[in-house]
């Protein structure tokens, strides 16, 4: 009953550039409920201890383990082998700099993005340690939370044709981040204040609406709606000015 899985895995170690990038084959017997987290760790421990990949939470909350699984970006930890064919091709995410094998540098990319977008609450209000918190209605809190659920795994970036072709595009993760701050009443910025960064071809107008991000997001964030919200606000800002 149990299958033999044939893995074809992208290999490259920057420390040994004389060995060019290649696909390497591995075989593994499938066990019940096996995820790619379990499979890859077994491959590392039993067959090739130099195999590089990233996992942290292994529970689909940290966003470390996104990779191309049979061509599509996804979180390896929550991908069960029973949902995959016998042949499984694994490659690192495109767009992000390769660390080695299946491991890419999403951290530096997202830090740069968040600096670029100034992705923090802009407010002049001083914090009063003795005071009560500012009130907020619960639906607003939920709406912010919905956008804030992004785990910066990079799947949407890797799935985006524009991001693949144009390195300076901020992608769905960036635009969703913008949406999160636009709907947050605590952030005092007006749309025109983010226009310089977001209302451009590197920003929302670089998006050509292919919706691979929306189809692939492991957190199922409604990216189509979030992107459209930012697009409308930025278009309006371009007409209104300050």
């Amino acid at each position: 009953m149990s299958r033999f899985l044939n893995f074809s895995i992208f290999r490259y170690n920057p420390a040994t550039p004389e060995i060019p990038p290649r696909m390497q084959d591995f075989q593994l017997d499938e066990t019940p409920n096996m995820s790619l987290f379990i499979a890859l760790n077994r491959l590392r421990e039993e067959q090739d201890p130099s195999l590089m990949f990233d996992f942290v939470c292994r529970a689909a909350v940290c966003g470390s383990c996104a990779m191309l699984i049979n061509g599509r970006p996804g979180l390896a930890c929550k991908t069960l082998t029973q949902d995959l064919p016998d042949k499984i091709t694994l490659m690192p995410l495109p767009v992000f700099k390769l660390v080695g094998d299946l491991s890419v540098d999403t951290g530096v990319w997202f830090r740069g993005l968040n600096e670029n977008l100034e992705a923090w609450i802009h407010t002049d209000k001083p914090f009063d340690p003795q005071g009560l918190e500012d009130r907020m209605d619960n639906p607003t809190a939920h709406a912010i939370y919905d956008a804030e659920r992004c785990i910066e795994c990079g799947s949407c970036i890797a799935a985006c044709a524009t991001a693949n072709m144009r390195a300076d595009f901020i992608g769905a993760a960036g635009l969703n981040r913008v949406a999160r701050f636009l709907i947050d009443p605590r952030d005092e910025r007006q749309p025109y204040q983010v226009f310089e960064v977001v209302g451009t071809d590197e920003g929302v107008f670089g998006c050509i609406g292919l919706m691979a991000c929306d189809d692939i997001c492991p957190m199922e964030i409604p990216l189509q709606q979030q992107l459209a919200l930012v697009r409308r606000k930025m278009a309006l800002a371009s007409l209104k000015g300050k």
Binding site: G71, A159, A161, N164, I208, G209, L210, M211, A212, D215
Partner: peptide, 17 residues
């Protein structure tokens, strides 16, 4: 890049472009 990307992804909306 675009064509390789579209083939890997096998995603209808991407081909639609």
């Amino acid at each position: 890049i675009f064509i390789q990307h579209s083939r890997r992804l096998a995603h209808l909306d991407t081909w639609a472009w």
